[in-house]
Simulated assay, not measured.
Amino acid sequence: MIDRKQFDARREALEKQLHEKLGLRGKTLSARLRRAGRLLPKRLRAEGRYLVDAERKLSHPRLATQVDEVRVGKAFESIEAHLKAIDPADRRRGRLIHWLAGLVFNLLILAAIVLVALRWQGVI
């Protein structure tokens, strides 16, 4: 059977990593994983759902025996390994670059429309 204190310590560490690496907020692990959505791969979302279900079962003495300790450990390890590979600074830089690329594209479209309008009016 899983030690509840050890599970809670790993859960808190995972919640901290989700906040630091992905910027996810929420009071519980389930809230943070729900907010993660497509930021996590499909397999890791399933592992997260298993952890949330295991947490719910561990709160009840009879249901706690149904939780597989090995699978819980693998779920924690796989999510933590994925989060370790994420660089928050690189994510911020990527978002800024995508935002600037969209802005430049819109300005090019605006310039093209202005040039077409000026050509149509005979100014150019």
Rank of each mutant, 00 (worst) to 15 (best):
A101C: 05
I86D: 15
I79V: 09
L44G: 10
Q17W: 06
H82N: 13
E20M: 03
D8A: 13
R11I: 03
R38P: 01
E20C: 04
L63E: 11
I97N: 04
V67M: 08
R93E: 08
R71E: 11
L39G: 11
G102P: 00
S59G: 04
F105A: 14
G48N: 07
R91A: 06
L33E: 02
W120D: 06
I97D: 07
A9R: 09
G94Y: 15
P88R: 05
G94S: 12
L115H: 06
E20Q: 10
R25Y: 09
A112Y: 04
A89E: 14
G26F: 01
S59I: 07
L108W: 03
F105R: 15
Q17V: 06
L39N: 08
E55L: 05
K16L: 05
A46Y: 05
R45C: 08
G48H: 00
L40V: 08
A64H: 07
P88T: 13
R25A: 00
A101P: 01
V104C: 07
L63Y: 12
F76N: 02
R32A: 07
L63F: 13
L22S: 05
A81F: 03
Q66R: 05
A111F: 01
L63P: 00
A81N: 10
H98F: 04
V72Y: 11
D53I: 02
K27D: 06
F105I: 11
R119H: 12
R32M: 10
R34K: 13
L44Q: 04
S59L: 12
S30T: 01
K21Q: 13
R43L: 08
Q121G: 11
R119G: 11
R34Q: 10
A101G: 10
D53E: 11
E47H: 06
L63N: 04
G94L: 15
L103R: 12
R11N: 06
L108T: 12
A81L: 08
L103Y: 13
R119L: 13
V104P: 02
E55D: 08
L14N: 03
D90M: 13
D8S: 10
E47W: 04
M1V: 07
V52S: 10
S30E: 05
F7T: 00
I79L: 08
R34H: 09
R10L: 10
R92D: 12
R35V: 09
R92I: 15
H98T: 13
D3T: 11
W120S: 09
Q17H: 08
Y50A: 01
E15H: 03
L83H: 03
I109H: 01
R45G: 09
R34W: 00
L110T: 05
N106G: 02
I86M: 12
T28W: 09
V123M: 06
D53S: 09
R34A: 14
L29R: 01
L24D: 13
A46D: 04
L63A: 05
V114Q: 01
V52I: 06
L118E: 07
V104R: 14
L29Q: 00
L110I: 11
G102N: 01
